[in-house]
Amino acid sequence: MEAREAAARVRVEELESQVAELTARLEAERETWSRLRMTREMVAEVVAEMSSSDEASVAEQPVEPTAGDQPVRVVGAIMAPHWREGLSVDAPH
């Protein structure tokens, strides 16, 4: 009977350890989820503010799709040259 009791106690201690580990992981994931949700909401607010304030000025300013004699790809409001052999990340902007 004592051996069974000892084995049951070991199983309970193992399960308690697993529960503690899972609880800690759950809290960490909840914190990550909360930070990501708040970040997404903040970015959405900033983008909405920027869109409403910049909408008129962007519409009035045409974008020229060239940089010197090199064609560029328009990505939002950022103009980036097309990749070509020998182009490095240190290319001038």
Rank of each mutant, 00 (worst) to 15 (best):
M1H: 12
M1L: 13
M1F: 10
A3N: 10
R4Y: 06
R4I: 08
R4K: 08
E5D: 12
E5H: 04
A6G: 00
A7W: 01
A8C: 01
A8R: 00
R9F: 12
V10F: 07
V10E: 01
V10Y: 00
R11P: 00
V12P: 03
V12C: 04
E13L: 15
E13C: 11
E13Y: 08
E14Q: 06
L15P: 02
E16T: 01
S17M: 08
S17K: 05
S17T: 03
Q18L: 01
V19F: 07
V19P: 00
A20Q: 03
E21G: 07
L22P: 05
T23Y: 07
A24N: 07
R25K: 15
L26G: 07
L26W: 11
L26F: 08
L26E: 13
A28I: 15
A28C: 14
A28V: 15
A28T: 14
E29M: 12
E29H: 15
R30C: 09
T32S: 15
W33C: 13
S34P: 05
R37A: 14
R37Y: 14
M38S: 14
M38Q: 14
T39V: 07
T39Q: 09
T39C: 09
R40W: 06
R40T: 08
R40Q: 06
E41Q: 11
M42L: 14
M42R: 13
V43T: 03
V43C: 03
A44E: 07
V46N: 02
V46L: 06
V47Q: 00
V47A: 02
A48M: 01
E49F: 13
M50E: 03
S51D: 14
S51L: 08
S52F: 04
S53Y: 11
D54P: 00
E55V: 11
E55Q: 11
S57T: 12
S57E: 15
V58Y: 13
A59H: 09
E60D: 13
P62S: 00
E64W: 13
E64R: 13
E64P: 02
P65I: 01
T66N: 11
Q70I: 13
Q70H: 14
P71H: 10
V72Q: 06
V72S: 03
R73K: 15
V74K: 08
V74D: 02
V74E: 05
V75R: 09
G76V: 09
G76I: 08
A77Q: 14
A77D: 13
M79Y: 02
P81D: 01
H82G: 06
H82K: 00
W83G: 12
S88P: 08
S88Y: 00
V89D: 07
D90C: 05
A91R: 05
H93M: 06
